[in-house]
């Protein structure tokens, strides 16, 4: 089995995890989670240099910050299947007394999480701080962050985008999930953001695009290229073109599944489209 086929198996199993998690509690955010599944799997299984176990300080390893915290289902599944905590714990998603809160948090001590997110627009600043601490510590590893496209409507991002370029935070790779959707509709209808590539470049970032953001092969190639561009005086932005709800036909190309769980029948249909590969939790 090729590496890409192996990762594809993890992707399919992650989709199943996401669908089953949100179905069980009839809440959560499947659309954006499914759209970023290939990205998360590629990042954690192939792109990032990670140490064994979880160390909050992240010294000597790459770090990842999820700014659009509502896509916690994909984050939790990938962390669990990477070994940060027991896969069975996915069963507790959004339940009382769980470490798997609706939005990710350090507050309950879930391994793998370094910051709370959910209130949008804060993650890039945090990633910048972590990246600058790495420089102070002479740590050559990279800091990754992920942001929704709609999330860029929050002004704090643009403070952070200006700062990262101005201060040459070149050990940072911030990825924007460009699925063109947000809660109230398409991003163009809600608040058009214009040419994001031109905007990031105007702020002084090195920008690259991954046109097929749901292709593991394209993500691996694009993120390796992004890594190669670090350390050259500019922060790196990856514009990741994804399809919200990817892998489940009736959830694709719509914002309808941003924050809605499938019913029993829909779940069965969705799971049939994604047969188990690694075994369900």
């Amino acid at each position: 089995m090729s590496k890409i086929e192996e990762l594809q198996d993890v992707v399919v199993q992650t989709r199943r995890d996401i669908l089953r998690m949100v179905h069980k509690v009839n809440s959560g955010h499947p659309g954006g989670s499914l759209g970023c599944t290939e990205f998360f799997v590629s990042l954690y299984h192939e792109i990032m240099e990670l140490k064994e176990g979880f160390h909050m300080d992240g010294m000597g390893e790459d770090l990842f910050f999820l700014s659009n915290g509502h896509i916690s289902p994909v984050y939790y599944s990938v962390l669990a299947r990477k070994g940060y905590f027991p896969v069975e714990e996915l069963n507790t998603f959004r339940l009382i007394n769980s470490r798997l809160q609706g939005h990710p948090t350090t507050h309950e001590g879930l391994p793998g999480i370094r910051i709370a997110s959910g209130s949008l627009g804060q993650g890039m600043s945090v990633a910048i701080g972590a990246a600058q601490a790495k420089k102070l510590n002479n740590d050559i590893n990279i800091v990754y962050s992920l942001h929704g496209d709609g999330e860029l409507q929050e002004g704090q991002n643009w403070e952070a985008i200006m700062y990262a370029a101005g201060k040459k935070v070149d050990n940072l790779i911030s990825t924007i999930d460009l699925n063109g959707q947000q809660i109230d509709g398409s991003t163009d209808d809600v608040l058009p953001m214009g040419d994001l590539k031109a905007k990031f470049e105007a702020f002084g970032w090195d920008v690259l695009e991954i046109k097929e953001g749901n292709s593991v092969a394209a993500i691996l190639e694009g993120m390796q290229e992004a890594k190669a561009r670090t350390g050259k005086g500019k922060p790196v932005c990856v514009l990741l073109h994804t399809i919200m709800g990817n892998g489940v036909d009736f959830m694709m190309y719509t914002h309808a599944w941003h924050g809605k769980a499938p019913n029993d029948e829909q779940l069965e249909n969705a799971l049939q489209q994604n047969p188990a590969t690694l075994g369900d939790y």
């Binding site: 992240g58 910050f65 600043s125 600058q132 601490a133 952070a160 700062y163």
Partner: peptide, 27 residues
């Protein structure tokens, strides 16, 4: 090297401070 001038951008400053703690700094 231990001073970060963030400009007139307090929200960004608070986030950067949070991130700096992760690498063991006391901002």
């Amino acid at each position: 090297e231990r001073f970060f001038q963030v400009g007139i951008a307090e929200a960004n400053m608070m986030g950067i401070a949070a991130g700096l703690t992760i690498g063991g700094k006391i901002p």
